[in-house]
Design a protein around this nucleic acid. Sequence first.
RNA 1: GGUGGGAUGCCCGAGUGGCUAAAGGGGACGGGCUGUAAACCCGUUGCGCUACGCGCUACAUAAGUUCGAAUCUUAUUCCCACCA
Length: 369
Amino acid sequence: MAIGEFKIINTEGEARRGEFQTRMGSFQTPAFMPVGTQGTVKGILARDLEEIGAEIILSNTYHLHLRPGENVIKDLGGIHEFMNWKGPILTDSGGYQVFSLSKLRKITEEGVTFRSHLDGAKVLFSPENVVRIQETLGVDIMMVIDECLPPNATQEEVKKSWQITLNWAERSLAAKNRADVLPFGIVQGGMFEEERERAINDLIKLPFAGYAIGGLSVGEDKETMRKITAFSAPKLPKNKPRYLMGVGLPIDIVESVALGVDMFDCVIPTRSARFGRLFTMDGYINIRNKEYRTDSNPIDADCDCYSCRNHSRAYVSHLIHAKEMVGATLASLHNLRFYQRLVKMIRSKIEANEFSLFAEECRKKWNEN
RNA sequence: GGUGGGAUGCCCGAGUGGCUAAAGGGGACGGGCUGUAAACCCGUUGCGCUACGCGCUACAUAAGUUCGAAUCUUAUUCCCACCA
């Protein structure tokens, strides 16, 4: 397969089973990318990412630019060498930080000016800068800089915003130097179908290697998130991967695959793990709860992760209560393995044309609120 | 044996006449977490109720002063420091 090629192996309804090729290898879709913001998936050794079954991971342009800086990473052999992760890496552009660090930034025509959350220094994130940083890092997939708005933005604000994002997308493509760093465009448009539609129509005219749905899972209600995903995903090119940024809970992944999404990333498995929420096929448990303090069972009897093979719920519970680092690690290993087992299951179900049945079972078990 | 200091809710600890069921930690218990400024944040934590209110019981023990005491007085018990 050529770099940037997306091969669809089977479809079932809107759900797609595919494979995407990057410079550092291919990954199967639907895919879940563990989040490694600062050049590490929190609590996890690179060695263990393989065991978890991750095929691609995400990192962050903004964070790596501030520290240690893309040039340091380049001089040390590029991001794969730096992290010792030899599979594909996608970097978010810092667009999410436009949202999450909104108090520390200013949007201009040229780009986004941040006040570094580390030392307050002024940093300009222009489309051109962000492309250059990601090419310097040597990532496999780079996201264009975008403006991610809060869910309560008005239609007028949304319209103005996605037009800036679109303009930045064009400039990003124009600034590209490396053919082996694949650019992904991002659809914004807030919670308005009308704006999403226009943003999509304009964005898909641009030759991106993949298209992302951004601006969701930012605090809107579940119904809205589903509605916008259902509206947007099928309108994106069929022959390119579709990436729903920042999503989500296990049920969100199942539902979104059913709506035609191929790629996901989310901090939930790692952050939840550190805070004691552990996922199983029967739903999640809060390992901090009293009932687990003396529970000799593994976190999930059906799981093959390192934690479940070697330790009891009582042990993990104790470590989380005691704030021992290994507690966070064992919990993260488990949750990440759960997510990878989930997408693997989804892939095999789509191949067998049994995904819709599987999705129905998940809905029953995980019963959204 | 002498002198001084001290005993507060599960633990540590603030509080020296009313605004105190008693600050603040910790622990415990529960909840939250969606392109990570998150090993974080929030709530509850004396008992009982027809509970955003009421009634009990509470600051070593007992007795007192006072309209009113965790706070003042006396006695007792225990702890700590130093001196013999």
